[in-house]
Amino acid sequence: MASDSIEATDPPSPPKNVYKDPDDGRQRFLLELEFVQCLANPTYIHYLAQNRYFEDEAFIGYLKYLQYWQRPEYLKFIMYPHCLFFLELLQNTNFRNAMAHPANKELAHRQQFYFWKNYRSNRLKHILPKPLPESSVSATPASAAPPALPPTTIPAAASNIPPTPPQAPSPMQYGSTSVRNDPRNSGVEKRKRK
């Protein structure tokens, strides 16, 4: 009976100073997004290792907390997907210790470059169908040719779609494909024209 009277007289009071974020977490979201994307740079990870950030338990906990960026609702904001790969690697103590050495930083940077250089061509090998060899098509006799497929009809909605323009070459291609625009060869071309 005494406990009932205490509960009735002392209702829980709401906290007086509740922090209300003025921008509804937008600033924190942008800061965390920027930090996570900085992890795509092996030089930045090397900087963190050199300045002993990886020895701070609070910072390690922060890296574990940032793994929520791998969820689909946050993943769509990431522009540099390598940052998520490095964020996953930073959960390992051996990787954090190894990134303190300049040789390992250079190795990670070189491997990242080779991935970017070859990613599109390697990906297209598995996506695009392989063309038929020319010799097998011309060598088959007419009687052994496969039956002709029936003509396909194109729906009216699909016929209004304009053809896609050819893709421009990537600015990240390795090497110079144009000798004419190369400033080192401009003098050679002038001499040849005379």
Rank of each mutant, 00 (worst) to 15 (best):
Y114H: 04
G61F: 07
E34I: 14
D10K: 11
R71H: 02
F86R: 05
P42I: 05
A108D: 04
N17Q: 08
D24H: 11
Q27N: 13
L30M: 15
L48T: 14
R120N: 02
Y74P: 02
Y65W: 13
Q37D: 01
P102W: 03
P11N: 04
L90Q: 00
Q70F: 11
Y114R: 12
E57W: 02
N118D: 11
M99V: 01
A58C: 05
R120H: 13
P14C: 10
L75T: 02
L75P: 00
T93I: 13
R28D: 15
L66F: 02
R71T: 12
P22W: 03
Y80T: 07
R52F: 07
F95R: 00
A58S: 13
P15M: 08
L31F: 10
V18P: 13
Q67V: 01
A8M: 10
D21I: 14
R110A: 10
E55Y: 14
Q67D: 08
N17S: 06
Y68T: 02
D23K: 07
F113K: 04
L107V: 15
W69I: 00
L87R: 01
W69A: 00
L48A: 13
D21E: 15
A8G: 07
R28N: 11
R26K: 15
E57V: 07
E106D: 12
K76P: 00
D24T: 12
Q112I: 11
C83F: 00
F59R: 09
E34Y: 13
C83D: 01
C83M: 00
R52Q: 09
L33E: 03
L84W: 03
N97A: 05
R71S: 08
L39F: 05
